[in-house]
Design a protein around this nucleic acid. Structure first.
Length: 287
DNA sequence: CCCACGACCTGTGGGC
DNA sequence: TGCCCACAGGTCGTGG
């Protein structure tokens, strides 16, 4: 479920292997993911050294010493697996089974240190591109992006300005990456539930107090998810090297028909469809 | 300009 | 057991 917390968790899992690493071999096992891989993808990466892995919204960024930035988006089903050379030396502790999903292993990066990073993506909604560093900010994928929800530019004043006069539902508005960058279907549902705001409300109808609560709640929900991802990341790393998915107990998402977990609420979670996507909420405590 | 909706692609799980 | 449909974390383009 690659929303911001998952992408951040993936970044943290890849950083120890890719930060400062030189790529000695790159395999593009098919010419395209969601979009065609850029011209010379393999050649432009082979021999390049990666700087420090970073993240913007749901994009992973690997800056190269040649001036390009390798930009990666996980789409719906993208994930990485790391096969560590060191890990292979301790077969009792680590076990990597590269053939489990060979069919969807679309891109493979080999580092000078003997590490292998494999990108899997069954649905192929993910994508990669090489973009000159100086052109990143003006690139269509990044130009209109809203602030990072965990940064200081995301605050009540920002949300007030973005929500002002909007008739669109607050659910759909929060999914808009131009309003705030990195939220997805799950964490919007979770943040609205925790804030006590009904998803069908027009964004422009939220009161200042509700906006303030929403800002703080979004931060909390994402920060907690990153924390969970961090601890799960250690488990995964110890188990099989897979990155990108982890367990999380959600309060509303996927809980249709189950009792609301807000203390004293007593409501039942319902599922509706907004913009073709499922929204889960409690009609009792979300108003 | 704003918004709803279908498309993209494949896998999985539930119901019959 | 097998088949068919609904649905799945995200964007992007089209059309009203």
């Amino acid at each position: 479920m690659p929303e911001l917390p998952e992408v951040e968790t993936v970044r943290r899992g890849l950083a120890p292997v890719l930060d400062g690493a030189r790529l000695v071999r790159v395999e593009a096992r098919r010419p395209d993911l969601r979009f065609a891989l850029p011209d010379g993808f393999v050649q432009r990466l082979t021999g390049a050294r990666i700087g420090t892995m970073s993240r913007r919204a749901k994009y992973l960024l690997a800056p190269l010493d040649r001036g390009d930035v390798l930009v990666m988006h996980l789409g719906m089903s993208g994930r990485f697996e790391v096969a560590s050379a060191k890990a292979k030396q301790k077969p009792g502790e680590f076990h990597y089974a590269p053939s489990v999903d060979e069919k969807h292993a679309h891109v493979v990066f080999h580092t000078e240190d003997g590490e292998t990073v494999t990108y899997f993506d069954p649905r192929r909604f993910g994508y990669m591109d090489l973009i000159p560093a100086e052109a990143l900010a003006d690139h269509p994928w990044f130009k209109g992006l809203g602030p990072e929800p965990l940064g200081e530019d995301f605050n009540t004043a920002h949300l007030k300005a973005e929500f002002a006069g909007r008739k669109q539902s607050v659910k759909a508005t929060l999914l808009d990456q131009c309003v705030v960058a990195g939220l997805g279907n799950i964490y919007v549902c979770e943040a609205l539930h925790r804030s006590g705001v009904a998803p069908e409300r027009a964004a422009g109808s939220l009161k200042p107090k509700e906006l303030a609560v929403l800002v703080e709640t979004i931060r909390l929900v994402l920060a907690e998810a990153i924390e969970v991802g961090g601890s799960t990341l250690r488990d995964y790393a110890a188990a099989d090297g897979a990155l990108g998915y982890f367990q999380h107990r959600f309060k509303v998402y996927g809980r249709e028909g189950e009792p609301c977990l807000k203390p004293g609420c007593g409501g039942t979670i319902v599922r509706i469809v907004q913009g073709g996507r499922s929204t889960f909420f409690c009609p009792v405590c979300q108003r």
